[in-house]
């Protein structure tokens, strides 16, 4: 159990091993560990951000949905209003049209009646002349009395 040269050999070996460990063993292992720690931290941060983003997106979607519903209601309301308006306008127009048609009809009827009256008057005149002719056939010369008859016709 005496101290001897083994001490020196082992000291050299020890220092060499520590140096080797410091240069070639520690850095790659520590780098790998730190790199992974960074990646895990990044991943966790990303996950947190994603959750926040999701919440935001959901709130946004809810808002937009509410807006859409309100807009839809507005559109329906205005459509209803417009419909009523259109119906009213149509009604008014129809009334006017009807009045016009009635007025036109009445005018036509009036004209027809006047024409018929004229016709009737002419026919009555003809019939009267015919009757008169029949009566006066024997006594009256057509040529001599036609001026009188014409006068009568004009008076009718």
């Amino acid at each position: 159990m005496n101290i001897n040269a083994t001490l020196l050999g082992q000291t050299v070996a020890f220092l060499l091993f520590v140096w080797f460990c410091m240069k070639f063993v520690w850095p790659p292992l520590m780098n790998a560990i730190e790199e992974r720690q960074k990646r895990i931290a990044d991943g966790l941060a990303d996950a947190d951000r994603a959750v926040k983003d999701l919440e935001l997106a959901q709130a946004k979607a809810t808002d937009q949905l509410k807006d859409a519903k309100a807009t839809a209601n507005e559109i329906i309301e205005s459509a209803n209003k417009r419909k009523a308006q259109i119906v009213d306008e149509a009604k008014a127009e129809a009334d006017i049209e009807r009045a016009k048609i009635i007025a036109q009809g009445q005018a036509e009827i009036e004209a027809e009646r006047n024409r018929v009256k004229e016709d009737l008057r002419k026919q009555v005149a003809t019939l009267a002349i015919l009757g008169a002719e029949k009566i006066l056939e024997r006594s009256i010369d057509e040529a001599a009395h036609s001026d009188i008859v014409n006068k009568l016709v004009a008076e009718l």
Binding site: A5, A13, F20
Partner: peptide, 25 residues
């Protein structure tokens, strides 16, 4: 005087340790 056995086992184990950690690293 050299203790061959002590040196052999300690250096051998040291090399084993460094080789193992280095290859993993």
């Amino acid at each position: 005087t050299w203790h061959i056995d002590s040196l052999f086992f300690s250096v051998g184990l040291g090399v084993l340790f460094l080789w193992l950690f280095r290859s993993v690293g």
